[in-house]
Simulated assay, not measured.
Amino acid sequence: MSLSLRTIKLIFATVLAVYLATALGLSYATSAGIIAILSILDTRKSSFKMARNRFYSTLLALTVATATFSLLSFEIWTLSIYLAIYAPLAYRFRWEAGIAPATVLVTHLMLETNLSPAFLGNELALFLIGAGSALISNIYMPSQDQQIQAYHVQVEDLLKQILLRFEAFLLQGDGRNEAELINQLDQTLEEALKVVYLDRHNQVFHRTNYQVHYFEMRATQSKILRTMAKTINKCFLESRENIILASLFERTAQQLSRENSAQDLLLDIELFHAMFRERPLPQTREEFETRATLFQLLHDMEHFIQLKVDFYQVYKENEEPSA
């Protein structure tokens, strides 16, 4: 949430809360505005969760305060006993976020020396109006769809560049910049995941894990590519296997889009395994080491492709639009 949007929401929620509390004739109406300010968070989900926990915490605080003040007196030292009972319970139930606003409401009871149902209702109403105003202000959240779609394009373009660079290395020995591209890919994926995590937390009533799982799948693929980048540097000899594996890199690069199942690539992997087995045995140690390296690359590519196939199988009927 941008600073300007957060500021607008704070102003709206605070003014609305104070206005409603005043219109209803509640005592300490400005406290509703304070509660509204404390309840503005970055996502709808976190706001709802916080409001729920603070509501429970407020009920607990008013209950403990009523018992404490009625049995003892409306003194400062009694407030310490209230806190000694209430605070540990709030932490025990993980409602500690409500300690501050709830205790503000409890101080009203002490100042007014009033435990009547009507005044307790006044304090509860202050909380409900403040938290409710914050929730209303958080109904609007800017859409992240356009930014997420842009990340899809960036990630798939970088994956394509990396795979084509691997192909070039096997065919021409030119793979000097693959680590730079992978670093760029990792940074893009980190940024994308921050956005999709935020977007998911803003979908309170209709949530989908599609985007999160998509970029997490790509992040796992990036780790495989980083391993492959280290392995591929060991391929110094030109061979028929180099050409075969290079063609797999090229075909995979052309089938990276998320609407592509990549199932055909697994069939290609099986064919390549068969072709490798039919090739003449290595004659020198260098040829043997190169063949072993190429087999490792083929195995890593199989894992890379299988991740995409598994993702597609899970989400092939997902409502998310293709990009």
Rank of each mutant, 00 (worst) to 15 (best):
D145T: 10
I148M: 03
L83R: 02
M141K: 15
N138Y: 06
Q144K: 15
A150E: 14
V155G: 05
L111S: 13
P101S: 08
P142T: 08
E156F: 11
K160F: 09
V153T: 10
L124E: 06
Q154A: 12
S116T: 13
K160Y: 09
Y91R: 06
A118P: 05
R92E: 08
L89M: 07
F119E: 03
Y151R: 10
A84G: 04
F93E: 00
I81Y: 04
L124R: 06
Y91E: 06
L158G: 01
Q144Y: 14
R92K: 14
H152Y: 13
F93K: 02
Y151W: 11
G130Q: 01
H108T: 01
V155D: 00
Q161A: 11
A100N: 11
R92L: 08
Y91C: 00
T113Q: 12
I81F: 07
L159E: 10
L124D: 07
F166I: 08
G130R: 01
T103I: 03
F166E: 09
Q144W: 10
A125T: 07
E96T: 02
Y91A: 02
A168Q: 15
G98T: 00
L126H: 05
S116H: 09
A150Q: 15
A150L: 10
N114D: 15
P142D: 10
A100W: 10
E112H: 06
V106M: 01
L164Q: 12
P88C: 04
A150K: 15
Y82L: 00
H152G: 04
L163V: 12
L126P: 02
L135E: 07
A102W: 13
D157R: 15
L115C: 09
N114V: 10
M141E: 15
Q147H: 05
A168T: 13
Y86M: 05
S133H: 10
L109C: 00
P101Y: 09
A90L: 05
F93T: 00
A168K: 15
S137Y: 06
A102M: 12
Q146R: 15
K160M: 10
I85L: 04
I129P: 01
L111Y: 13
L105S: 02
I162T: 00
P142M: 07
Q161Y: 08
E123R: 11
S80A: 05
N138G: 04
M141Q: 15
I81D: 06
A87W: 13
Q154G: 08
F119N: 02
L124A: 08
W95C: 03
I81N: 04
I129A: 02
A131E: 03
N122T: 00
Q146D: 13
V106L: 01
D145R: 12
V104R: 00
M141N: 15
M141H: 14
I148K: 07
G132E: 05
L159D: 08
I81H: 06
A118D: 13
M141F: 12
I162R: 03
G130C: 02
L89P: 03
H152A: 04
E123S: 10
L124I: 09
A100T: 13
A125Q: 06
F93G: 00
S137H: 03
L164I: 12
L105W: 02
T103L: 03
I85Y: 01
F169M: 13
A168S: 15
L111H: 14
M110D: 01
E112M: 08
K160S: 14
E96P: 03
A168W: 12
A97K: 11
A118Q: 15
E112Y: 04
T103S: 09
